[in-house]
Each structure stands twice: as C-alpha cells, then as structure tokens.
Deep mutational scan, measured.
Amino acid sequence: MATKAVCVLKGDGPVQGIINFEQKESNGPVKVWGSIKGLTEGLHGFHVHEFGDNTAGCTSAGPHFNPLSRKHGGPKDEERHVGDLGNVTADKDGVADVSIEDSVISLSGDHCIIGRTLVVHEKADDLGKGGNEESTKTGNAGSRLACGVIGIAQ
C-alpha cells in the first residue's frame, strides 16, 4: 500500500500549488496538507474528481469521485461524495494553506484517490446545502481553477 501521495495543481491562470497526502494505516485517516497560491481571497471548493484525465484541462477530470452514488455534502457529513473535501481558505495575498484530515478518502482500496484528479474551484462549496439540484452534485463551487493528478510519492 502506498502511504504517501502528492498532487501538483496547475491551471490556465495564476492558480498553482502542491498538496501532499499521507496515510499511516490502511483504514486510518489521510492527512492532506500543502499550499495553493494565486486564488482570490475567501473560500474555494476542494474536491477529488473521478478521473485522472487532464487532456482537456480540468474539465476532463469528470464529476466528483463518488463510488457510493451519494449526494454532495461537506467533509463531516454522512451523506457526501468520497471526493468531497470541503473548502480551502485563501488569505488576502491569495494563498491557501491547506491542513485537512479526512477519514473517507484513502490511498488504497475502494476509496483510493491515487490516479484521480484534485481540483480547486472558483467559488465556495455550499456543502450540499444550497437548496438546488446543482448543490447536491457540485456544491455550486463554480469553474475549475486548477487541477492535477494525484500520484504515489516516496
């Protein structure tokens, strides 16, 4: 089992970053940390998408990683996509320092995120509470600013 993974985020604009993942036990939580720069100040949706395909930019990554066919939600919700990591918060300089621990994603097994795409979005994720159909699919997080395929790390 891989215990570490990394993702280099890039987009068409100024947004870029490096996100690290570490899972010490196969059924334990995954620590997610790193930094994203070039964002507007505020909240930005942060999700693992189904495919590791960036051939047409971030759009070819498909929908959120959702092997259990659930509705979109927040990272602490029972009803959520596996890939729903909530929001990252950018400061006035456009930098989001990421520090998350998640017990639904994994670096092995059915919820493995390796080979899938991590995406940072234009807007805040409403965590499935926006009151419309799009909220239950995407959290109304808007366009995909930057993305990268999650790969095994040393």
Rank of each mutant, 00 (worst) to 15 (best):
L85D: 00
G130N: 08
G128N: 03
I152L: 03
F51V: 09
C147L: 08
V32S: 03
F65A: 09
E78P: 04
G17S: 04
D84Y: 05
V149S: 05
R80E: 04
L9I: 11
K4L: 11
L145F: 13
S106V: 03
L127E: 12
G139N: 15
G52I: 05
R70M: 09
G109W: 00
G130T: 12
A90T: 06
S135K: 05
G28D: 07
K31P: 01
E25D: 11
C147K: 05
I114E: 03
G151D: 06
G73R: 12
V119F: 03
H49A: 15
S108Y: 13
V8T: 11
E41D: 09
G94D: 05
G131I: 14
D110W: 08
T117A: 09
D102R: 01
I114C: 04
T59Y: 09
K137T: 11
A146S: 07
H121P: 04
D102P: 01
G130C: 12
W33H: 04
E78F: 08
D102N: 06
I105M: 10
N132H: 10
N140P: 05
G28Q: 13
S60D: 13
G128E: 04
G115L: 01
V88H: 01
V149P: 04
G115Y: 00
C147R: 04
G83N: 05
V6S: 13
N87M: 08
L145E: 11
P75M: 08
L9R: 01
K24W: 06
G52W: 15
K4A: 14
P75C: 15
G94A: 04
G73E: 07
S69C: 09
A2D: 07
F51D: 15
D126H: 12
V48C: 04
A2P: 15
A90E: 03
K129E: 06
H44K: 02
G115N: 02
G131E: 07
N54H: 10
G86V: 05
G57E: 05
N132M: 06
D93V: 08
G45R: 07
A141T: 14
I100N: 01
V95P: 01
V15L: 08
V95G: 07
L127V: 12
A96T: 06
G62D: 09
T138A: 05
